[in-house]
Design a protein around this nucleic acid. Structure first.
Length: 932
RNA sequence: GCCGAAGUGGCGGAAUCGGCAGACGCGCUGGAUUCAAAAUCCAGUGUCCGUAUGGACAUGUGGGUUCGAGUCCCACCUUCGGUACCA
């Protein structure tokens, strides 16, 4: 009794595909190729718990697209690999002592077995893992590219894609060195520097203040401009995980993974200057075929705002601190002198020591500024605070420093702050405004200081109300809305000569006037921060960087990169994977022969002991798949040109910001450096929706609603799992699992099986009902409609409706006997992308010798998909009252007269007069009537 | 708070361009087959009124545009996801 036996069929064909190398893809197109198609899944982290039902959702979708396109003659690239660095394997090592590499290898084996079990048509010869030394050799190489690159903001150039751009990543050797570099860098080592963007380039142990050679100064200057740089900034140190985390990995003051508390600590860390690419990361989103919501998410994350920087002179009173050289050099002692001087000098790159620079997006509200706020960490605080306020200010600063970001947000309900005792002078009207410190102003955004306009900013208003600060309204809402608290655009009031100007015009006017007066300038700011790129763990890529040591073995702050030929930098051998318990990286426990070496010039060197974050490996894996065995280069430029960009990329929304932003950033750097010809990596992006448990909740062990794909395959087979995951609903939608639904598609496959196979026979043979007979007109129509429907649905990724159309076909043809082979043959091909195992089996039963993987996709004749006659509704005042049969191609007049002749219609027309008749050819007739 | 997505039978969902709402599947009801069951096959299945032909009401709520609205416009409600003092 050869019933539908999924297990037998699936094992048979999986073995066949393996043995025949059916899905191995050469880099040169096959004869008659209809063009390349690169379809990619977001590769998984191979966790110890194996595949989750969420994985096969996206993977089945891409597999359908890929199998379909192969049959359409496309040259298809569809690879799979492993994002295998990361904490879990290392935490397992801490507990058991098993090397993370061993655990990783085992987990990969499990994942691979599971993926093969589901019949995905990956080209396994292109498999890679981010943990392979052959792979991370090139991750390290790309890091060296970042290290070797500075961003030339003004460079205008045309890329290999033909597009014109301003701004380019260029070799560090081409960085112009300023004349006074020695002076500049000597100063930077002793005082706190403020280089172009971010707080990079802080000097090392400031005991060698002077006597810097030009060569050293140049190196330090270059280091301060690299895309990969070292910064000592407050970071999110997580004692529970023993590592530093990126801002994005901290949620509500706890680590995203594990929920451990996170503290702020100043630490020396590697940063990547992603902010340099902020504008291009926004503007080049435009031409991508991505969900608008994801583009918006990225735009918001980057958070570009255009506003103005405005300088406020701090009033001279009380600005002395006891002790050393703190005499504020108030050369232009009066506001008028200062303005005059600025008129002559223009707006300086860095303001004088007695000037407070603020950033605002609403320069049109300058007349409404009633106080200033500087962040507690702002360097000017010490200098401007009056003696009377000093204790209060210091106490507040200490409290703020101890607060984590969580505390700051938690206390957000209550605005807090302290008056510094100092006043600034509003450059537009010479009014004195008090300067406060408050933690609702962040040091890391803009200039770390604001002018507060309580009338037109929620936060400022709240603060002003708490501390009884005057509120001056300067924008008229122009509607019922009260002016106070109105944050939109309106018309200027109480703004002197500017009264009556609309917001936009006012902004433009005052910005250019401030600029002309040397008091302000237009400025752009981003929410996006530079990317904190180092971690303190063992199981990540080591950095290919050495630190120079002085005679006492202390780091000088100067660095050397490994030669590309010396890559990869392998991990040191370790027995003990326990974290150091301090922010000191794990790799610092390595043996001295890994940690130290002496350079050819005799300099003692110590290896960088941080490791790269998990994001590093996933930033470029899509490139390596094109050329995964290349020992000479990370990708053959010809292959990049051929395969890239990825035509379809499917994965979860959780990567909408980080992974996709980081990848795009690296891609653009490599593009700027001439290694790539495409400016963007992923042309079309689709996010699959999450699969919930049967109870409509997220699947989790604690809720006990986790579905294991292994069990589903055991009970129903891979084809049923694939089919069900696609039948559940639209790919992008969140949807709950229903085991009854799996049974439904399993029954469907059983019906398909019996449509071909004689299940009463002893062997698997074609049913006697399947015969070489011509199709009836109706059968032909059903066939062609099905081919058209399934084809169109696959093209628009509507797999659920494609499946329902195949169900309709099956419902129709199981009721037909004898069944023409000419209908069943193409149907097996239609089914193949969805349920490839049973399709191959039926294809073979029909007498085909080869796999259907490269068989031609069935074609349809549009003329054969429609009936000669159509049944259309006849409406009266928009309500369907009866049906009418009309020729498919009938024109309006014919349809109307056919309708009018119909006795049923005439009955409805009785006693009414026709006002109007609406006819849509081939669809409907509507009589608009009025009772007589 | 802000941003985004979505609300259609008992359930998952369909309706691609403003034109027969509920395709397809699940569940349920009845029947066939069977000693019985499983499996399979056939029929029915939005709600209400009616024996019935038929009719009324129905796509979160309230308005609007239109000959005609699940689909377009306005206001609101609910759910889910993201985000959090970014000046």
């Amino acid at each position: 009794m050869p019933r539908y036996d999924a297990k037998r069929i699936e094992e048979k064909w999986q073995q066949y595909w393996d043995e025949q190398n059916t899905f191995v893809t050469l880099n040169s197109p096959q004869a008659g190729s209809k063009g390349k198609m690169y379809v990619l899944d977001m590769f998984p982290y191979p966790s110890g718990s194996g595949l989750h039902v969420g994985h096969p959702e996206g993977y089945t979708a891409t597999d359908i697209v890929v199998r379909y396109n192969r049959m359409q003659g496309k040259h298809v690239l569809h690879p799979m690999g492993w994002d295998a660095f990361g904490l879990p394997a290392e935490e397992h090592a801490v507990k058991t002592g098993t090397h993370p590499a061993v655990t990783t290898k085992e987990n990969i084996a499990t994942f691979k077995r599971q993926l093969k079990m589901l019949g995905f048509s990956y080209d396994w010869s292109r498999e890679l893992s981010t943990t392979d030394p052959d792979y991370y050799r090139w991750t390290q190489w790309i890091f060296l590219q970042l290290f070797d690159t500075w961003y030339d903001v003004t460079c205008e150039w045309t890329g290999p894609d033909g597009a014109q751009r301003t701004g380019k990543g260029r070799p560090i050797s081409e960085l112009p060195i300023p004349e006074n570099v020695v002076e500049l860098m000597s100063k930077a080592r002793t005082s706190s520097p403020s280089p172009p963007s971010g707080g990079e380039g802080r000097g090392e142990g400031a005991n060698v203040a002077s006597g810097m050679s030009r060569e050293e100064a140049v190196r330090r200057y270059q280091d301060a401009h690299r895309l990969a740089y070292v910064s000592e900034a407050p970071v999110n140190w997580c004692p529970g995980l023993g590592t530093v985390l990126a801002n994005e990995e901290v949620i509500d003051g706890k680590s995203e993974r594990g929920g451990h508390p996170v503290q702020r600590l100043p630490l020396k860390q590697w940063m990547l200057r992603i902010t340099a690419y902020a504008d291009r990361l926004i503007s080049e989103l435009d031409n991508l075929d991505w969900p608008e919501s994801v583009k918006l998410l990225q735009r918001n994350w980057i958070g570009r705002s255009v506003g103005a920087e405005v300088d406020f002179l701090v009033e001279g009173r009380g600005s002395k601190v006891e002790g050393e050289d703190n005499t504020l050099d108030l050369q232009p002692s009066t506001f008028d002198d200062w303005k005059q001087q600025r008129q002559a000098s223009g707006f300086p790159a860095t303001p004088e020591p007695n000037v407070l620079r603020v950033y605002t997006t609403r320069p049109d509200t300058l007349f409404g500024a009633t106080y200033m706020v500087v962040a507690p960490e702002h360097p000017l605080v010490d200098q401007i605070t009056t003696d009377a306020q000093r204790d209060a200010v210091n106490a507040y600063r200490e409290k703020a420093a101890l607060k984590s970001d969580l505390d700051r947000t938690d206390l957000a309900k209550e605005k807090s702050g302290v008056f510094t005792g100092a006043y600034a002078i509003n450059p537009v009207n010479g009014e004195e405004v008090p300067i406060w410190i408050a933690d609702y102003v962040l040091i890391s955004y803009g200039t770390g200081a604001i002018m507060a306009v309580p009338a037109h900013d929620e936060r400022d208003l709240e603060f002003a109300q708490t501390f009884d600060i005057p509120v001056i309204e300067v924008v008229e809402s122009g509607s019922d809305e009260a002016n106070i608290g109105f944050t939109g655009e309106g018309t200027a009031i109480n703004s002197g000569e500017y009264n009556g100007l609309p917001t936009a015009e006012f902004k433009q006017k005052i910005t250019s006037e401030l600029n002309a007066a040397g008091l302000g300038r237009q400025a752009v700011n981003y929410k996006l921060r530079d990317w904190l790129f180092s971690r303190q763990r063992y199981w990540g890529e080591p950095f290919p960087i050495w630190h120079e040591l002085d005679a006492d073995g202390n780091p000088t702050g100067l660095m050397r990169a490994d030669e590309p030929a010396d890559l990869p930098v392998l991990h040191p051998h370790m027995e003990d994977f326990k974290p150091t318990g301090t922010p000191e990286p794990m790799l610092s426990k390595a043996s001295p022969d890994w940690l130290y070496k002496t350079a050819a010039d005799g300099t003692r060197l110590k290896r960088e002991t941080n490791s790269m974050p998990q994001w590093a490996g996933s930033c470029w894996y899509y490139l390596r798949f094109c050329d995964n065995r290349n020992g000479e280069f990370f990708i053959d430029p010809e292959l990049e040109k051929y395969w890239l960009p990825v035509d379809l990329y499917i994965g979860g929304v959780e990567h909408a910001v980080l992974h996709l932003l980081y990848s795009r950033f690296w891609h653009k750097v490599l593009f700027d450096r001439g290694h790539l010809t495409t400016a963007e990596p992923f042309h079309k992006l689709v996010n699959q929706g999450m699969i919930l448990g049967e109870n409509n909740e997220k699947m989790s062990k604690s809720r006990g609603n986790v579905i294991n794909p292994d069990d589903v395959v055991k009970d129903y087979g891979a084809d049923s799992l694939r089919l069900y995951e696609m039948f559940m609903g639209p790919l992008e939608q969140v949807k709950p699992w229903q085991m009854k639904g799996v049974e439904g598609v399993f029954r469907f496959l059983g019906r398909v099986w019996r449509m071909y196979v004689d299940d009463a026979a002893d062997n698997v043979v074609l049913s006697d009902a399947v015969q070489d007979i011509p199709l009836t007109e109706e059968q032909e129509r059903v066939l062609h409609k099905t081919i058209k429907g399934v084809t169109d649905d696959i093209e628009r990724l509507a797999f659920n409706t494609a499946i329902s159309k195949m169900m309709e076909f099956t419902n129709f043809f199981t009721g037909v006997s004898p069944r023409p082979r000419a209908a069943l043959q193409p149907f097996a091909l239609l089914l193949a992308p969805f349920a490839p195992h049973i399709a191959e089996e039926l294809w073979a039963l029909l007498g085909n010798a080869d796999s259907l993987a490269y068989a031609s996709w069935p074609e349809y004749d549009a003329a054969k998909t429609v009936e000669a006659e159509a049944e259309i509704p006849v409406q009266f005042n928009g309500k369907v009252r009866c049906k009418l049969r009309v020729p498919q191609n009938a024109d309006k007049e014919t349809m109307q007269s056919l309708a009018e002749q119909n006795p049923e219609v005439q009955k409805h027309l009785e006693g009414n007069s026709v006002v109007k008749v609406v006819v849509v050819p081939g669809r409907m007739v509507n009589f608009v009537v009025k009772p007589n």
